[in-house]
């Protein structure tokens, strides 16, 4: 009952965020997790070979503490068809400091096209870039976005 109430209260929020198309496999329990998640964001890969929708599974990125990211990979921005490929990599780096993270996140597949990168850790404040690399048939293609982490 509580879960249903929460679900109903969250539906308008999804619409406001422009993400009125929850993933087909999304379960009520996972939606509950939205109360502690960041908004969905999108990115297109460099050669426009796939479309990425992602969100933090925490309200804000913590400094020097682990956090998780949920990533969806679609064939295009219509988000009708999950992309199929061999492997997904999620990473982050600070090009101006010429380093990346000190940890390697664990990538877990939830369902076709849906992944969670567990154990991301940004160890210092500043501008970070996130990378989603999709490997298929020996070729990776990258989608990326930036965020600012305050100290």
């Amino acid at each position: 009952m509580i879960i249903r109430c929460l679900l109903l209260s969250l539906c308008p929020m999804f619409t406001l965020l422009g993400c009125d198309r929850p993933s087909p496999s999304e379960t009520p329990e996972e939606v509950v997790a939205d109360t502690a998640s960041g908004p969905w964001e999108t990115a297109v890969s460099a050669d426009e070979g796939f479309f990425v929708r992602w969100r933090l599974l925490v309200p804000d990125i913590p400094l020097a503490d682990p956090f998780d990211i949920e990533v969806e990979v679609w064939t295009d921005e219509s988000m009708n068809e999950p992309a199929t490929f061999d492997q997904l990599f999620v990473d982050a780096g600070m090009p101006h400091h010429r380093h990346g993270m000190n940890v390697v996140p664990e990538i877990e597949s939830l369902s076709p096209g849906r992944w969670i990168a567990r154990g991301m850790l940004l160890h210092m404040p500043g501008r970070w870039q996130f990378y989603v690399d999709v490997l298929d048939d020996g070729r990776i293609e990258r989608a990326q976005w930036s965020t600012w982490l305050s100290g």
Partner: peptide
């Protein structure tokens, strides 16, 4: 601009061999 260069794609040359 340290953010100027963006990796777009890369290929594993063992697949190129095949």
């Amino acid at each position: 601009d340290p953010f100027m260069a963006r990796l777009t794609s890369a290929v594993d040359l063992s697949v190129t061999r095949d």
